[in-house]
Design a protein around this nucleic acid. Structure first.
Length: 265
DNA sequence: AACAGCCCCTGGGTGC
DNA sequence: TGCACCCAGGGGCTGT
């Protein structure tokens, strides 16, 4: 699913249900979902959930003892839920964590792109991620430095997790619309003023999306209301809310891209 | 280093 | 109705 706002929403919901519970067993039915199955089976049982957090699009399950951390990436279609073990499991729940009190943490993932890791040092594991877009380290100066000399489309760079952690296709399109910038523009062509505008737009869009619990789409993620506030994503041929020009859908860097050809330059 | 292109998967939608 | 084809929110890997 899931970009930063949807992952953040997931973390907030799971936090209430998971903190304090103890892992008892792990069932791994799709080997590629977990690159180190032996480590997880050996090290996870007996540990309790101390806290949950998010870094980019990764979910971090902090444990006690604290020398291991469970990391989950939902990729395209992953969903996490906490259920009673007696509730029938859905056929795509390839990874199931049995908890105390008869509960299960289920990782459903239709497209099987999601990943689960148990690591010693999450900071090291996530070292290549860029700054959090809502944190102080993500600022116009950082953006300007990263865009310098980069000829690729600005949209493509916004999707690079080493530049800004957690951006995805929906919110990249929405941010560029709100900044009035054409997603095909070379990153190095942006003026300082445009970078400042884009920086503000990214923050505003993500904050609004978190406030509305993210965007619900298809069968992958539900619960959010942000889809009704999107201005370009998924609105091909519908009139731009600002000028009435039909929204265009093009391909940039092999990703579907939505823009208003009149408002974005 | 930067970048284009391919690949991993499944299932829903569309057009013939 | 059946079926081939296209499409998808992510990201890692390859070769140039």
């Amino acid at each position: 699913m899931p970009e930063l706002p949807e992952v953040e929403t997931t973390v907030r919901l799971l936090r209430r249900e998971l903190v304090g519970h103890r892992f008892e067993r792990v069932s791994l039915k799709w080997p590629r979902q977990c690159p180190t199955p032996g480590v997880i089976r050996r090290e996870l049982p007996g540990r309790r959930v101390a806290a949950l957090s998010r870094r980019g699009k990764f979910i971090l399950v902090h444990l006690r003892p604290a020398d291991r951390t469970l990391l989950i990436h939902l990729r395209m279609s992953g969903q996490l839920s906490v259920q009673r073990a007696s509730v029938p499991s859905d056929p795509h729940a390839h990874t199931v964590f049995s908890l105390d009190d008869g509960l299960e943490l289920r990782f459903s993932d239709t497209r099987k792109f999601g990943r689960v890791y148990l690591v010693r040092d999450p900071d090291e594991f996530l070292a290549r991620l860029g700054p959090e877009p809502l944190g102080a380290a993500f600022n116009p100066k950082w953006m300007r430095e990263r865009f310098e000399g980069r000829k690729r489309a600005i949209k493509t760079l916004l999707l690079e997790q080493s530049i800004v952690a957690g951006m995805g296709n929906i919110y990249a399109d929405e941010s560029l619309f709100r900044a009035h910038i054409d997603p095909r523009r070379s990153a190095s062509s942006l003026s300082s003023r445009e970078i400042r505008t884009l920086h503000s737009a990214i923050r505003a869009v993500l904050e609004e999306a978190i406030e509305h619990q993210g965007t619900s789409f298809d069968w992958v993620y539900s619960g959010g209301e942000m889809q009704s506030r999107l201005r370009v994503y998924g609105r091909r041929e519908q009139p731009c809310a600002t000028c009435g020009t039909p929204i265009e859908r093009i391909v940039v860097g092999q990703r579907s891209t939505h823009l208003c050809p009149r408002c974005q330059r």
